[in-house]
Computed example of a mutant assay.
Amino acid sequence: MPDKRPRGAQPHWRPKRETLRVLVAVDTVLARYREQLPVSLRQLWYVLVSDGVMAKTERDYKRMCEYVGMARRSGRVPWEAIRDDTQTAVDAPLSFAGPTDFWAGVAEAADDYRVDRQAGQPARLELWCETAGMVPQLVEIGVEFGIACFSGGGFDGLAGKHDAALRAAEGGRKTAVLHLGDHDPSGEHLFNALAEDVIAFAQAAGAEVEFERVAVTAYNLPTAPPKATDRRSFSGTATTQAEALPPDILAAIVYQAIEAHRDQAVHQRTLEREEIERQAVRERLWQS
């Protein structure tokens, strides 16, 4: 039997009353978090659950995904407002339309000149998150401070753990990993496994690494009881998913965790030096 699901653009789609109710709420959420766009579908759903628009069930999540998908096909929801984390993109090789385009790119690169914004700080910071879908938002936060962001999902990323230890050894000073993950048995065990392995690798390389778990439990988020089949130890009585954090609160708690490890005076001096050097690069470029 042919697949009757919609394909391509659907400019003439007219949502039913219940669908429209949910989409009006979606419009409200996207407007509320316009400074943090794009958001993932899972983040959008958690906000709708917190707002009382939808129930915290897999059925309602799938229903919302269907509604939003059709809204994007119809043009009601902008494509760029939602982040599709299942897509893996590989950029094409860099190319230019001609010499004029090349020199314009060089000028743009000079305007983007940056120094190492972690230089001189007490510790070199990294942002880690359990869910790969949160990486783009954390990257937007970390870029201001020159902090890299990594996904630490899964228990078997051995090469990633070893690479983290090598980065710590190359940094020449203490590395502090700020980790954002789910508050549940899996999240706790994932965090402990990552921390223990990276610290052990780092010690063998003569480096110091500390892990800090960024709390997600103090924001009245949707919760669920731990799975009865999960026998692992757990410090809480209810589970909370990190993606349930509204985007603005996510940004606020990550900023707070970063600032607790940084010297603001050093950061300001670094930015001033960066601007002086950026101007020198521009002047030399135009002289050549």
Rank of each mutant, 00 (worst) to 15 (best):
I249E: 15
A119T: 02
R83H: 15
F102H: 04
V53T: 05
M134S: 13
P78V: 06
R83W: 15
R63F: 09
A159V: 11
M134P: 01
C65S: 06
R284P: 00
R117Q: 10
P99G: 03
D91G: 02
P38F: 12
L138C: 01
E196W: 07
V198C: 09
E126D: 08
K4E: 07
N192D: 14
S235A: 14
T28K: 15
T100Y: 13
V106E: 09
M1E: 11
A123N: 05
G52E: 05
N192L: 14
T86G: 09
K161P: 00
V198P: 05
E18S: 07
E130M: 07
S186C: 04
V198D: 09
C65R: 11
E275T: 03
Q203P: 00
T240G: 04
V115S: 12
G236M: 11
Q118Y: 09
G75S: 08
P93V: 02
P15K: 08
W128Y: 14
V198Y: 10
H189A: 09
Q137R: 12
S74N: 10
V266S: 11
V24H: 14
N220Q: 15
W286S: 00
Q241H: 08
S233Y: 10
R117A: 07
A207G: 02
E18W: 11
V216F: 11
H12P: 00
R231G: 04
A200F: 11
D197K: 13
L285H: 06
A242F: 11
P136C: 03
R231C: 07
H179T: 06
P15T: 04
I82D: 08
V216Y: 10
K16P: 00
M1F: 14
S235L: 12
A104G: 04
P2F: 12
E212R: 13
P225C: 07
Q256Y: 08
R117S: 03
V106P: 01
L158M: 12
D60R: 10
K227I: 04
D111M: 13
Q87L: 13
Q256P: 00
G187I: 06
L138Q: 03
W128S: 01
T88R: 15
P11G: 03
E108N: 11
R213V: 04
R63G: 00
G152I: 03
V281Q: 10
H189G: 01
L221S: 02
L271Y: 06
E140F: 05
A224F: 08
V139S: 11
A165E: 07
M64R: 10
M70W: 15
R72S: 03
L180Y: 12
R17E: 12
T240V: 15
C129S: 09
N220S: 14
D3G: 01
T270I: 12
K161T: 00
P247L: 08
V214L: 10
M134R: 06
Q121D: 05
S235G: 07
S233V: 02
A89Y: 14
Y33S: 05
V115K: 13
I276E: 15
Q87I: 06
E58H: 07
A31P: 00
P122Y: 10
Q264V: 08
R76H: 11
G154L: 08
A110N: 06
D156L: 12
F145C: 00
R21F: 12
Y46V: 01
R14K: 15
T19H: 14
V68R: 09
Q241G: 00
A200I: 01
Q137D: 04
A164D: 08
K174F: 02
Q36Y: 02
